[in-house]
């Protein structure tokens, strides 16, 4: 089976000379397609960098990254732009909607950038699926945090991406809103969507199919279908070792 994301000996360094920091250190990892993988680890363990490198937002220092079976390291910026348009969807912690556009326009913009003639009905359907069929003409500032994140989710999904990357998608939400967003993600994965999610929240990670733990830029552990308590305990152990 094809993997959603593959890392082969990937290292990532920032800075030069004395100030050089190795954030990813020889990571080998394969995240299966059609599954939901959570990435966890103490602060500074390299989770966000892993996500950015997997999505082709940041170049790696060495190694190879594959997205949906295609090598994305060492390819020109234009190719990466096309990749972001059609194969990748993003959901961010702070939503990152365009403030001047309505919910419907925000979703339609992503579709238009992808170049596909996405009919208006499809845009509305995407918003309907996240339960915002009655909020089409609202601007982001007129929506609650949970509603904004659902617009972002609809925006990410309207182009039917190969992989959906989520960076702390529930980090800025209250628990009820967070549950709604996680339910929506679960529904997507059950429909065959690949999801890679970075999170701090053991409760959120427990909804995933597998949890990958990072420490000091290396893969430290991997749990399949863990319970929240199990995730939390493992995380505490890793943080203690790190200290």
């Amino acid at each position: 089976m094809r993997n959603a994301t593959e890392f082969h000996g990937v290292s990532k360094e920032y800075g030069r000379g004395e100030a050089r920091v190795r954030v990813l250190d020889g990571v080998d990892l394969a995240l299966p397609a059609g599954a939901w993988t959570a990435v966890m680890g103490p602060s500074g363990s390299g989770k966000s960098t892993l996500l950015h490198c997997a999505a082709g937002l940041e170049p790696v220092t060495s190694g190879r990254v594959l997205l949906d079976g295609e090598v994305i390291t060492g390819v020109p910026e234009g190719v990466l732009t096309g990749l972001r348009r059609r194969r990748v969807g993003f959901v961010f912690q702070d939503f990152n909607l365009i403030g001047s556009l309505t919910a419907e326009q925000n979703v339609a913009l992503a579709a238009k950038l992808a170049g596909a003639r996405v009919p208006r009905a499809a845009v509305r359907a995407a918003l309907g699926e996240v339960g915002l069929g009655d909020r089409l003409r609202h601007r982001p500032r007129e929506l609650s945090g949970g509603q904004r994140q659902r617009v972002a989710l609809a925006r990410a999904m309207v182009t039917r991406p190969a992989v959906l990357f989520a960076d702390e998608p529930t980090g800025a939400l209250d628990s009820a809103s967070a549950r709604t967003v996680l339910d929506l993600l679960r529904g997507l994965v059950d429909g065959g969507q690949s999801v890679v999610m970075v999170t701090h929240d053991p409760g959120a990670a427990a909804r995933a199919d597998a949890v990958v733990f990072l420490r000091d830029g290396r893969v430290a552990d991997r749990l399949v279908r863990p319970a929240a308590a199990q995730v939390a305990a493992r995380l505490v152990e890793l943080e203690e070792v790190a200290c």
């Binding site: 234009g78 732009t81 972001r84 348009r85 990152n96 403030g99 950038l113 925006r155």
Partner: peptide, 15 residues
């Protein structure tokens, strides 16, 4: 920040 967001959504430089 807005312009960079458009880039993550797949907007090219020409856009």
């Amino acid at each position: 920040a807005d312009l960079a967001l458009l880039r993550t959504l797949g907007a090219g430089r020409g856009h």
